[in-house]
Amino acid sequence: MKRRNFLKACLIGGTTVALGKTNKGWASGSFEGYPEAMGVLVDTTRCVGCRSCEAACNKEQSLPEPDTSFDDKSVFEEPRRPTAKAYTVVNEYEKKSPGGPVYRKMQCNHCNEPACLTSCFVNAYTKTKEGAVIYNSKVCVGCRNCMIACPFNVPGYDYDSVTNPVIKKCILCYDTRLKVGKPPACVEICPQEALTFGHRADLIKLAHERIRANPDRYYDHVYGEKEVGGTSWLYLSRTEFDKIGFDTTLNNEPIISNVKDFLGMVPMVLSIWPALFSGIHLLSKHDTQQEHGHDTESTQEDR
């Protein structure tokens, strides 16, 4: 306990000194998320595995052409993970279940207290008031801390741009849709309305109401309501969540604790880390405007 507090103090102190300002809510521990945060409720009992959401995301986010068409069901042979080229993937579980297979869409869950954000020393991540966790490639130094920190193993690394490190993940369609109140592209395309868009607080009530009204249809849990401090994407399932690929070992504490433990393994690096990355960052960016050596503003606008 004492070590943790010490590490936390070190982290906050180090980051504040190095970056001038921090808007991270580490110390809160019980941050409930922004009151007006939006979210998506994924009802896996409605999903038919059509992969239309994958296609919609590909077009909306101008991602590269897929390896195979979006109506190719052979992709279900092996479970997939989101990558820099596909921010969302649908996997098939319970293949031999008498109730038929279960499909589950996965993407960034847009955590209330994102581990990617707290682990990032150059403030490349921002949790917007609309609930989206967005990312600024202009300040990213490519350290991939966020990839290790994310409890859902989400951020993808774009290996194609060697000189300009780019982490890529679902941004809840922030730039093109969420910002102006529109539902994400994947939600809009879904033929089954397996994806319900709305205020996170409303979606939680709605999810519990679905369980109450159809106790035979649902396992009594809303994944993402509490896990790792709560996420903007929430899930309903017919079976226990670990049967359809969810990590049910995560506790309700924000994942920053884990990040601290990870960093605790390298306490010496801790003290020099911010300076180190600021330095690497400057070298790699050759940005003449940043004469004072620090990026104190995450300018998401100029993405």
């Binding site: 052409e65 390896d67 195979t68 979006f70 109506d71 992709v75 042979e77």
Partner: peptide, 15 residues
């Protein structure tokens, strides 16, 4: 749906 890409590469090509 990128219909013309069907089977362009194996579905599980490693990243």
């Amino acid at each position: 749906y990128s219909a013309d890409r069907k089977g362009a590469k194996p579905a599980h090509a490693k990243e």
